[in-house]
Design a protein around this nucleic acid. Structure first.
Lengths: 260, 260
DNA sequence: CTGTGGCGTTGATTCAGATCAATGCCCCGA
DNA sequence: TCGGGGCATTGATCTGAATCAACGCCACAG
């Protein structure tokens, strides 16, 4: 390819530094889906919680461990991996603000997956007992967790549909079309992560992803390094039609507690 | 094969008839994970609910529909399918007592999957509003739904691990070993469903399933029609080692509400 | 500067599992 | 009694994507 000519232009910008560190209480306040939870309850959680910063590559917890904490992801990102013996299979990417496998914590059951930090992460660790206590004690908090869990479930289903119903090339195409959805046509977008990570998220190997990217030219999408341009938007959007039931973002839909 | 010689012996027994029909209130009482929910709350739900019997093959709801009811599966079984255009991909098998995609109902969002009755089903339909009202009103009910949702989530993760980490043959082997877990060695077990359904559940085609069954002889498992015998239990259990993090049943772990 | 190691690309090869096709069996309804 | 339709089996073939391998590029440590 002509990678030599433009090799400088597409270096990735360093990840923007986010808000400075915080106290446990601040972390809870910052979490959107806890907005309806009364302050005192959050205080109670914060009292038995610590903020944890972990560098990329750290293991947050291991498959088969019994949860000691409920973990709120406040910053950075974490990947969940299915492990058997020596090989790992990517399952899901978690971003703020979300809980890491709340189901295991709620049920006092072992984690089914390994969690590893992808980009330097800020986690809020709440004592598992405290967390369960809060869920059983405060209705508003219980509802919040339920919403969070429901959103996670729907995200998983969407992922399954994406993998099971589309070919590798289609997944790549739809991913790119979606990425470029909101930019004016002709304007380039930068891939938001390293390619190997996008490949994982799309359920394929680096190599297959790379090859698919090459093929995109044939469908009106130009790739230069990590810059993506929809050259023929109509062609691209027709060939790779987005389906809201697969590609739609999963919003929180808060349920308001009503007094007994 | 020798299918001719024993063609009579392995006819499937007709499905055992379960308890007779019920009232909506009875259906709720029969649901184990609602045990901790106060009677009056269940009465309230039952007041806006109907029991529905659907024959095999019926569509319970369609992908993209907005839920009008929360659906409790009381009897029979329902399969969830991802649909794109003309082709369907099996996603999950639901058995009693469980909710059909509660996440969609809770969030007032469209179903992501199609639901179709597999074996004649008894469903309890609760008005979606009533259901959400109960969740936001009663803490115990909210907890019950949360447990249910959490269990479903973990079941999905296990399924993903099974599909992503094991080959088709291993999935079949583990399925059979698990099936024969509790019977004395040498004694045959009957497959609990039609083979095509087991194949779906294991994420493969009928043909691949059939071929894998043949191969099982090589690992100490004899197949005759729909009878399965562990001829060399040690061989079989070694070759197809069960992993509790994949093959373990997902139990409910009820959380008890504590007064505010 | 120089080595080392991760990422990305490209090419060749392999392979598990799907697909296509034909046949036999059984059930059920007319 | 016959015929149609679903399920299961078996064989032949195809193919999407993984795997294996080699190379260039860049960042970073010494």
């Amino acid at each position: 390819m002509d990678s030599g000519t433009s090799s400088i232009s597409w270096r990735r910008a360093p990840a923007a530094e986010e808000d400075p560190p915080e106290t446990p209480r601040d972390a809870l306040t910052a979490t959107p889906w806890l907005r309806a939870v009364p302050g005192p309850v959050l205080d109670g959680l914060a009292a038995h919680a610590v903020l944890h910063r972990l560098p990329a590559g750290s293991i947050v917890f291991e498959q088969a461990e019994t949860p000691a904490f409920a973990q709120f992801l406040i910053g950075g990102s974490v990947e969940l991996l299915a492990v058997r013996g020596r090989n790992e299979a990517f399952v899901e990417l978690i971003r703020p603000f979300d809980l890491l496998l709340p189901a295991a914590v709620l049920n006092c059951q072992p984690y089914l997956l390994r969690a590893r930090v992808l980009s330097d992460a800020t986690l809020l660790l709440v004592q598992a007992d405290t967390f369960r206590e809060a869920v059983t004690t405060d209705h508003a908090f219980c509802l919040a967790v339920l919403s969070c869990q429901a959103a996670q479930f729907r995200r998983r289903v969407k992922q399954v549909k994406n993998l099971g119903l589309r070919s590798a090339e289609e997944r790549v195409g739809c991913y790119l079309v979606r990425l470029a959805e909101d930019v004016p046509p002709g304007q380039p977008v930068r891939l938001p992560m390293e390619k190997r990570l996008i490949a994982s998220e799309l359920g394929m190997t680096r190599e297959t992803f790379s090859r698919s990217l090459n093929g995109m030219a044939r469908h009106g999408i130009r790739i230069e390094g990590d810059l993506v341009t929809l050259e023929h938007p109509t062609t691209a959007r027709t060939r790779f039609a987005l389906d809201p039931l697969i590609d739609g973002a999963e919003e929180f839909h808060p349920l308001q507690a009503k007094g007994t």
